[in-house]
C-alpha cells in the first residue's frame, strides 16, 4: 500500500540518521499484525499500518526503560493525543520522540467517531474532517432517548461486563500504579457483573484524559460501547471548562487545578 511505503521511507531515513534507538510501529509477520520496534532498516519490509493498535502506551514503557535514548514512533492523531496527555502527567518526555504523523482516512475517522483524525504534523496521508460530537451515535442517543431509556440501555450494557479489566489495561491514559478498580473498598471482589459504579469510577477517572482512541471498545469482549460514554464526558469538559483533551501540552486539566488557579466563571 502506498501509505505504508511512505511511512517505511520516513522510518528508514530516521533510522539511517541514527538518532533514535528504534522506530515503534506495526509489523505483519506469520499472518498477524502487532506492535514492533524496528531497530534496523532491514526489517522495515514488514511495517504496516493496520489494524490499528494504541502505540502510545508501548511508547511510554520503552522510554521509561531506556532513559538515555530517543524513540521514533508511527503516530496517528489518537496516539499523539495520548502522548500529550501522558506528558502532562509527567509520564512521557515528548522531546525524546520523533513522531511519524499519519492521518487517518475518512472511513477510519467515522469508525472511531474521531473528532481529530490526524496528528499536529502530518507526514503521511491527507487530513480529513473530524466527526463532530453532534453527529455521533452518542449525541443521537442523548437527543432521541429519554433518561429511562438511556438508563435501561446502559444497565443492560454493564450487566454484560465480565470484569476482564481489558478497558483499563489497553487504555493509554490509565497509568495509576494502584488502580481503584482493584481496591476492594470500591469494587467488590469476586462479583460479576460488577456494580455500575465500576464503570462510573473509570468514566470519572478518564473524564479529563480520554483521547477517544477506541482501544477500550475494541478490547471489550462483551461489546460495551465505552467510548460512547466517555465521549459524553469529553463533551461536558468542553462545555463546562472549554477544555480540549490531548491538543496542547501546556493546557492542564481543570480537574487537577484549584479554583484559585482557574476560577469557574458563571457556576
Amino acid at each position: 500500500m502506498k501509505v505504508s511505503k511512505e511511512v517505511r521511507d520516513i522510518a528508514e531515513e530516521i533510522l539511517r540518521q541514527g538518532q533514535v534507538g528504534g522506530v515503534l510501529g506495526l509489523s505483519s509477520e506469520h499472518g498477524h499484525v502487532g506492535p514492533h520496534l524496528f531497530s534496523s532498516t532491514d526489517d522495515l519490509g514488514t511495517l504496516v499500518l493496520e489494524p490499528r493498535y494504541m502505540l502510545a502506551k508501548v511508547c511510554r514503557m520503552i522510554l521509561a526503560d531506556f532513559p538515555g535514548e530517543r524513540l521514533g514512533v508511527v503516530a496517528r492523531g489518537c496516539d499523539e493525543r495520548a502522548l500529550i496527555e501522558m506528558a502532562k502527567l509527567g509520564q512521557v518526555d515528548l522531546s525524546r520522540l520523533d513522531l511519524i504523523g499519519v492521518a487517518c482516512s475518512e472511513a477510519q475517522a467515522r469508525e472511531c467517531a474521531c473528532p481529530h483524525p490526524y496528528p499536529r504534523r502530518i507526514d503521511v496521508g491527507e487530513p480529513v474532517q473530524g466527526v463532530a460530537f453532534a453527529d455521533t451515535e452518542c449525541a443521537q442517543q442523548a437527543s432521541e432517548q429519554d433518561l429511562v431509556a438511556r438508563q435501561a440501555f446502559w444497565t443492560h450494557a454493564f450487566s454484560r461486563c465480565i470484569k476482564c479489566y481489558g478497558c483499563r489495561n489497553v487504555c493509554p491514559v490509565c497509568i495509576c500504579a494502584e488502580c481503584s478498580l482493584e481496591d476492594a473498598s470500591w469494587v467488590a471482589r469476586g462479583k460479576i457483573s460488577p456494580e455500575i459504579s465500576f464503570h462510573l469510577i473509570r468514566a470519572f477517572h478518564v473524564a479529563d484524559k480520554c483521547v477517544g482512541c477506541g482501544a477500550c471498545d475494541a478490547a471489550c469482549p462483551v461489546d460495551i460501547p465505552l467510548t460512547r460514554l466517555y465521549a459524553q464526558m469529553r463533551e461536558k469538559m468542553k462545555e463546562m471548562f472549554g477544555y480540549e483533551i490531548g491538543l496542547d501540552v501546556t493546557n492542564k486539566s481543570p480537574l487537577t487545578t484549584t479554583l484559585e488557579e482557574a476560577p469557574l466563571h458563571g457556576l
Binding site: P35, V58, I162, Y165, G166, P221
Partner: peptide, 25 residues
C-alpha cells in the same frame, strides 16, 4: 512483550480469528 529482557502484560492480537483483539481476565 519483552522489554529489556522483562516480560510484560499481554497485548491481545487483533488479527487472531478467534479472539479478535480481546482477552478475558
Amino acid at each position: 512483550p519483552v522489554l529489556n529482557g522483562k516480560l510484560g502484560e499481554p497485548i491481545p492480537a487483533k488479527t487472531h480469528p478467534l479472539s479478535q483483539g480481546r482477552l478475558c481476565i
